[in-house]
Design a protein around this nucleic acid. Sequence first.
RNA 1: GUGGGCGUGGCUCAGUUGGUUAGAGCACCUGGUUGUGACCCAGGAGGUCGGGGGUUCAAGUCCCCUCGCUCACCCCA
Length: 418
Amino acid sequence: MVLKIKALKGFKDIIPGEVELWQYLESTARGVFERFDFNEIRLPILEETQLFARSIGEATDIVEKEMYTFVDKQVTMRPEATASLLRAYIEHGLYVQKPVQRLFTIGPMFRHERPQKGRLRQFHQLDVEVLGSESPRVDSELISMGAMLFDELGIKVSLEINSLGCPACRPGYREILVAYIAERFDALCSDCKRRSKTNPLRVLDCKVPTCREQIKDAPSILEHLCGDCSDHFGKVQDGLIQLGVDYKLNKFMVRGLDYYCKTTFEFITADLGSQAAVAAGGRYDGLIETLGGPKDSPGIGFAMGMERLVLLLQLQNREVTIAQTDLFIAGLGDEGVRVGYGLAHGLRKKGLSVAMDHEGRSLKALMKQANKAAARYTLIIGDSEIASGKGVLRDMHDREAEQQDVDLSAEAILSAMG
RNA sequence: GUGGGCGUGGCUCAGUUGGUUAGAGCACCUGGUUGUGACCCAGGAGGUCGGGGGUUCAAGUCCCCUCGCUCACCCCA
């Protein structure tokens, strides 16, 4: 009895028929990113465990229980890209070559969570970062790039933004919030009771109605920002308005990773159930220094969940363009197949995509295959063609078109096909 | 980790109050007179009904266990 081996829970194959949508997504994204002067960087999937523990935060769910770690080797499959990207930025001294680096990377991330719609254990992100600039214009430019990409993909999302403050103003706000929550502690759900101790800001985005009611009038971080943060956030909004990007303030939006400060934002969809965030990010001004980079080096970035984007693309049932085959060669009989075999090679060398069947089927079966492969032309080579030295070329898109006789040479076939 | 839903050929699903060789559509293969596709027609291949136990003369249909998938909570892209 042969054991049937299946992919791991939360790991998915992307098979032909679906992969085309991924290719479309990637090429569209690359196009937009390049127009905004971003450069691609490719990063390893495995890093020292410490890199993630230090950047994401020891107390976060990701680090506490979701990482794929090889304990004996002290290495971890990356749960997100920012930490790796910053590590590379620091390691190669990229900040020396160019003071402000704009980088993007695409690839798989790994988190050991319970899978559900739009969330897998191996999932893929498009990740974009701007390193070395403090300018609020960078924030709004980056956000506008995200908006432009969604627009070009034809995906409807709404944008929500917030500011989380900085080490100068957040602690003060946190105290105020903790005091506010403490007064209503008994009315909160059990999760929020726990959160009020571990991560009080999280209570703000609880979905339980009774909690929402309690925190409806909670003090907002936006009213407690320091001058610097407040000024920054104002300019980010000015930038968005100038660039015509619609947004909504969400004073309850928080981040799951510890390193965020100041500007945060999420692109949200209503079409994916509970996995509403299709892209999210924010500023992380202290992080580069924490990881051993230059002092006072700011950064901002965001990640888009590709599985979620693909689900949204599928929802619009747009037509996937299947790879085109220029020519299908139908060889009949030993000699026809032999000659076709050589011609296929010659034509491929000249740049045509050529399909051919090697199973010795009937002409009818071969024609069916050519049709299914969406071939533009079919070239028939049988005994009589071998005898006359001319193959029969048939236009598959135009039923009425006359078949034409062509010499059995790559050049003649190419020119006959136009 | 906690709940709900579901597991029948490659895919989408039917399967009556448990009862003869388990069905359909799509896809696939072969034909419809010698070598011509997207429509049509005929035929064919393909399933230990997720797995294991139990009840019964008889179980895809009932009970128990188990595995898997899925959605939601948590958390997050």
